[in-house]
């Protein structure tokens, strides 16, 4: 779905490479989380995936299209929809349904078809009730769901989210994560989620960690997070549950090092305690 070959990128006004030699292949229908500390190049990488930025060297392909192909830039942006961090700074319209209509309007879709897509997308993210509301009256989580709907209205195959939950409260984060996961599972949309919440990354199929513009670790959440020291040396955390398992292991408790969900931790602890507390 997304493929990069020796991708290199430097912002025009600086000589430093923000991304160096990135080789990445993201499968159709997968859910990939991208981790990395601030300034590691995550947002820059995301912008490579829908031709907002073009490679300085190497290639990026989206849906088989070379992103440097100027004539197909709208095909690329249509198929790889992007949601940004700040919900307030990505909305153009004063009414929710107009916001969702914005992208298909830009694509020159027929008015009737736009109407159908808007209704459908608002339903998908559970915001039908707010179709006529002003975005400024919504909560952060609701705003981000509208932002997701406004991208879905292009019928994209890929959804790229650049720290969509960074400015939300725990409730809003849950709403957004639930929506994204559902889109991935039920509609088969390929998801690339940039985040700095490890428990969100733990829900992905694959975790890619970048540091200083290079991919340093790539694997399933289980594989990646089991290397607790490595993750910590990159200035990142592991999910709380993994952290707990790690500390318990250090104390000599026999709990698997690749514990990433609360249920797993529960089961492991139960079996350590000899099943006594099971009932």
């Amino acid at each position: 779905m997304i493929k990069t070959e020796n991708l290199v990128f430097a912002y025009e006004d600086s000589a430093d490479e923000v991304l160096s030699n990135i080789n990445l292949n993201i499968e159709k229908g997968s859910f990939t989380a991208v981790l990395g500390h601030n300034g590691s190049g995550k947002s820059t990488l995301a912008k490579m995936f829908n031709a907002i930025l073009l490679p300085s060297g190497g290639k990026a392909y989206v849906n088989g299209i070379d992103t440097s192909d100027e004539k197909r830039v709208f095909d690329i942006r249509r198929s790889a929809g992007m949601v940004f961090q700040n919900p307030d700074n990505q909305m153009v319209a004063a009414v929710v349904e107009d916001e969702v209509a914005f992208a298909p309007e830009n694509l020159g879709v027929e008015p009737k078809e736009i109407r159908a897509r808007v209704d459908e997308c608002l339903k998908t993210v559970g915001m039908t009730k707010y179709a006529q509301s002003a975005p400024s009256k919504l909560s952060g989580g609701q705003k981000q769901r509208v932002a997701i709907a406004s991208v879905l209205a292009m019928n994209p195959e890929i959804l790229i989210l650049d720290e969509p939950t960074a400015m939300l409260d725990p409730m809003g984060r849950k709403e957004v994560m639930r929506t994204v996961k559902r889109l991935n599972k039920e509609q088969g949309i390929t998801v690339v989620l940039i985040t700095h919440y490890m428990d969100e990354a733990a829900e992905a199929d694959r975790v890619v960690v970048i540091d200083d513009g290079k991919i340093v670790t790539d694997g399933t959440p289980r594989e990646v997070f089991s290397e607790v020291e490595k993750i910590k040396s990159l200035g990142l955390d592991v999910p709380q549950v993994t952290e707990l398992a790690y500390k318990l292991r250090a104390l000599g408790v026999n709990i698997p090092r690749d514990t990433i969900t609360a249920d797993e931790a529960f089961d492991a602890l139960i079996s350590v305690l000899g099943g006594e507390a099971r009932d």
Partner: peptide, 10 residues
């Protein structure tokens, strides 16, 4: 940021 978000939606 808004300009980028608009561009991203074609």
């Amino acid at each position: 940021e808004l300009a980028t978000a608009m561009e991203a939606r074609c």
